[in-house]
Design a binder for these strands. Structure first.
Lengths: 150, 150
DNA sequence: ACAGTACATTAGAACGATTATAAACTGTTG
DNA sequence: CAACAGTTTATAATCGTTCTAATGTACTGT
């Protein structure tokens, strides 16, 4: 339920701050089921990814992991709510889930909808206006839309 | 086809830079049909709006303008392609069409999905990173997500 | 270990926004 | 007026996502 944006102790390799899928699930209080463990492995082993539900479902199929699409959606949402993932809504239909939960921004390559991370310190956003009436700031998304030139 | 982001000569009231729906259509080379004229009036008379296709369809119904939903979609896309509107994709399902085509950003009030304009000079974005490989910059969207606090 | 219960997974249906289709219409041109 | 190019329309189809209700699995206390 609560969001977590902390910087981890970062034991082990820089590539996999804390590699153990089980440890992640424990840490956010999700029962380590077969499906969740498998999906966590697919998501968090290897570098940062921007992935859709359908894509993850496909990856699971490829890896011979039996998971229903509904469970993929459920799991992605739980991970998002636990702060393990960040949801990025950019294009028309689809949602991307970003395994990079640190503060950062995105290039969005149209029209194929590819996402590329931008470190937060590559963009200088200063002087935010005050939020309207009875609202409170959640987060700032900077999306730099680019198109293929070649 | 070509996008227009020019500042208009701004004849007449500041409220309606150039009020005539017919003039707008002529200017971008769209045939001034009954439906397009009516929709243009609904969109461009009165201040800046963020509107969905369904909402515009509803407004047309209210104004006793007979237009099908398909035509609303077609027209919104044509207006967008002509630079009369800007499409803003932010929430899960829906697309907003913004009658303010000048450079600006948005507050997005979750969870009800209300949009509020932010003048471009209220946000300071400096030092953009260079776009990836064979891509060219299209535009920069800054979305400040806020939630109801009260 | 076992029962009990709370939580998870699943297939499939349902949903909402959008897009495609194909027929009917409008307006313009020769 | 006939032909034509562009428009509009109702409807069906599609896409990603969410819901539902049945079944399965994991943790708790004993």
């Amino acid at each position: 339920m609560a969001h977590r944006h902390d910087s981890e102790p970062n034991t082990g390799t820089a590539q996999r701050p804390f590699a153990d899928a089980l440890a992640r699930l424990k840490e956010v209080g999700l029962r380590p089921t077969r499906q969740r463990l498998a999906l966590a492995k697919l998501l968090f082993d290897g570098g940062d990814q921007h992935i859709t539900a359908e894509q993850l479902h496909g990856m699971a199929r490829n890896a011979s992991v039996k998971v229903s699409l509904a469970t993929v959606y459920n799991t992605l949402h739980q991970f998002r709510d636990s702060g393990l993932l960040r949801e990025v809504v950019i294009g028309q239909g689809r949602s991307y889930f970003d395994t990079n939960i640190h503060d950062h921004h995105h290039f969005f390559v149209e029209p194929m909808g590819q996402l590329v991370d931008i470190p937060v310190d590559s963009v200088e956003v200063g002087q935010l206006p005050t939020p309207p009436d009875g609202t409170v700031l959640d987060r700032v998304d900077v999306i730099i839309r680019v198109t293929r030139s070649a």
